[in-house]
């Protein structure tokens, strides 16, 4: 589904990713782990198409298409979803209103029929209940005044609503206590599907106790330096990044 080859990315003239290779098939969950400043967030932004992130070499192929050439909203319509580390606040725009606008924009982008307000409302309410997203949250302005946990739950709600093909979860565990983490992980696990690929980006191993990946890649200094099964996370936890990076060198 996703094929990244020799990817070099610069941000503000500085090279952050330096020849990254990664391949994910449908139905798989991969984890990217790495120390601070290794390029984890850059990877998530370049996949979603944020302005200011430039591919200088290499390619990203998504279902046979050149992902790097698409504007962000087209990627979203084609099923790329990025659950952000810091979901953005938009004052005055109610969460419900935003969900409806985004859902229908994606449907339009795919040439599908738009859903009416009642249809969206029903779908959202059903999904919101399982993620403990209250009616009140849906009425409030998007992410404004939400706690860290509320913001992350809303990200997962959007993921479940938009039914992406490639879901990227950027540091979804940051700022969550253990109960919130479990709730979010359950939400993610419920979305595991043979047709869907997931890329879980995290600094810590603890999220991977709940979302068990098929494969783990260690990112350091802009490259994948180690790969392995889920047991690699435990090794990382025990040895620390320094040692793994050194071993790999």
């Amino acid at each position: 589904m996703l094929e990244i080859k020799n990817l070099h990315v610069t941000v503000g003239g500085k090279e952050i990713l330096k020849g990254l290779n990664l391949s994910i098939a449908a139905g798989q969950v991969h984890a990217i782990m790495g120390p601070n400043g290794s390029g984890k967030s850059t990877l998530s932004y370049i996949l979603a198409g944020r302005a200011g992130y430039e591919i200088t070499e290499g390619s990203i192929t998504y279902n046979g298409e050149d992902l790097g050439a698409m504007p962000p909203e087209q990627r979203a319509a084609k099923g790329v979803f990025l659950a952000m580390q810091y979901p953005v606040e938009i004052p005055g725009v109610t969460t419900m209103m935003f969900l409806k606008s985004a859902l229908n924009a994606q449907r339009r982008g795919r040439g599908e029929k738009e859903l009416d307000a009642i249809g969206v409302l029903k779908t959202v309410r059903a999904k919101a209940a399982t993620l403990n997203v209250s009616e009140d949250m849906l009425k409030r302005a998007l992410n404004v005044g939400f706690s860290g946990g509320e913001k992350k739950r809303l990200e997962i709600l959007q993921m479940s609503l938009f039914e992406p093909k490639l879901a990227i979860l950027d540091e979804t565990d940051s700022g969550l206590d253990i109960d919130a983490l479990r709730l979010v992980a359950e939400g993610v696990n419920a979305l595991r599907d043979p047709s869907r690929a997931m890329l879980v980006i995290t600094h810590y191993q603890r999220l991977l106790d709940y979302i068990v990946p098929d494969r783990i890649h260690v990112l350091a200094k802009g490259r994948i330096v180690a790969e392995g099964g889920k047991e690699l996370a435990l090794e990382l936890e025990a040895k620390g990044y320094d040692q793994i990076v050194k071993d790999a060198a």
Binding site: R50, P72, E73, L82, A102, A105
Partner: peptide, 9 residues
């Protein structure tokens, strides 16, 4: 960017 990522033009 947040809006674009969620599919809005």
């Amino acid at each position: 960017f947040y809006c674009l990522q969620r599919g809005l033009g």
